[in-house]
Design a binder for these strands. Sequence first.
DNA 1: ATGTAC
Length: 457
Amino acid sequence: MRVPAQILASEGLLDAIIKDRSLNQLVNVATLPGIKKASMVMPDVHEGYGFPIGGVAAMDYPEGVISPGGIGYDINCGVQLLASQLQIKDNRDAVEALSKELHAHVPAGMGKGGTIKLTTEQLDEVLAEGANWAVNHGYGTRESLSYMESHGKLNDADPAFVSTMAKNRGLDQLGTIGSGNHFVEVDFVEKTYNNTIAKTYGLQKGQIVLLIHTGSRGLGHQVATDHIRKMMMAMSHYGINVPDRELTCVPFNSKEGQEYFKAMCAAANFAWCNRQIISWEVKNAWENIFGKEGGDLRLLYDVAHNIAKIEMHTIEGTSRKVIVHRKGATRAFGPGFKELPPEYKGVGQPVIIPGSMGTCSYVLAGTSKSHEMTFGSCCHGAGRRLSRSAAKRQANAPVLKEKLREQGIFVEAGSFRGIAEEAPIAYKDVGSVVDVVSASGIAKKVAKLKPVAVIKG
DNA sequence: ATGTAC
């Protein structure tokens, strides 16, 4: 190990953490060339490809390594939160119709294409421009870009390093959520914890909000597959040995490192464009149900939780440039961060933490403590405690769907398999996860969101 | 997560 391993958890959460390989993986990551300070995991950690999901690793720029396993196959998987002007108490009766309308507007499910069919030239524009492409083509407003991490676009993207196969997979996938834990969810604000920040973000008790959780679909997956294969062949050339082949990596400033990074940025841009177009479709569905009385759906914020970023961080008293890998970890920058829209600058970045299906989600605010402790990062969700296959064995999807309906939560899902894999028993308690990050000081609790409808793949 | 392993 070149650096220590750092675990953020409570005693209760450790039980689930020690059952899988996530701590071995945490230790493995600590061996990677150029890693600074510590190999870190958040309380929602679980086993992933090479790196644990819920992990943060910062490498020296530009000699340290970049590793696709530290980002994940779903490049720029992330969450967007939309705030409405309606209260749940006045609109309970409309929820079922709204969930059906959302389902009709947002294709969900494995391999599902959408209504937008891009030409290869247009796809290259999307890869270079991110959410800007959506806005330039009538999907949303320009001011919404200020409310997205990195303004919905990474400038280092280069479509030339995205393979034809990856591009072909993406041609009809804009505006689709995919499967697994991806969803569109209707929630209401059950509770606020910090009234000043809640007010700054425009959140109040009883308000209806919407969450969109998806990423770069088959395109991002293919980018990861292609570059992992190339890196595996190149790694020995750079004299790098890793304890697990899934940790394949090359120096950031190497040919293969640069090609992967530029392709990863392009896939991240595809994901931001995707969430922006889904957001536009969600607004169409909303308008169809509520008409003009429905009011505006305002983009509160959009965060990435599977990404690598070049950032400045203070390490042993010195400010240095690092390659921060966040895999199942959300950026959580504190007050004063210049990228934030002016009205959020005093309170820190919104950190959006989706819980498991039918439980609840949280909005937090980044703090300066996160810069000291976790390279400006926080957890990203509840975190699995059961594998997909174990969840399928233990969950009874039809019964679960009916149970959630009795609790006032409509689930629109493409398959019972999807529901079983995402059953709440397959996940840790998101409240306990959020309490750990809140107690550690890396983020502040702002609001708790309760679902009333979930659209899944 | 993913046209569910090349």
